[in-house]
Amino acid sequence: MKSKSSPKLRPTFFDAIVVVLVAALALGSAWWFYGGLGRSGPATYIITHQGQEIARGELRQPREITVEGQYHLQIVCDGESIAVTHSDCPTQDCVRTGRATHPGQSIVCLPEQVVIKLVGSGSGPDLVIG
């Protein structure tokens, strides 16, 4: 009779290595993504809809933006934070993400493909001429 491959059923030391590797990947990706942001200046939000930038502005200037597509998103910037206050998308992740206040944070609505990104000196101007 062919013996079926019977897995080990109790955690072993080698499982811990997998755990450490995954944790390392988490920390590594966190550093890669957030580490380069560096000094945070006044935050700027960039909103893209299906890959196209539809709005950009400074977080300290209050503004309301609506995204109309298959679903409808109400985005409110209150001068200190930006949030999706209402959406009729099925997942509601964008609304539940809550408020974004710091450079590096982002709010994503996958069904409507909307990305709200807060950037610091990273994508705002580094210097001004003229």
Binding site: S29, T48, G51
Partner: peptide
């Protein structure tokens, strides 16, 4: 990791990579 990669492709934006550390933690 695969889902984040898919999100990067469909959104055309790498912003979602910001979720990867948390998602990896949750996957533990």
């Amino acid at each position: 990791v695969g889902q984040i990669a898919a999100a990067c492709i469909t959104l055309g934006d790498t912003a979602v990579i910001g979720y990867l550390p948390v998602l990896l933690g949750v996957s533990l």
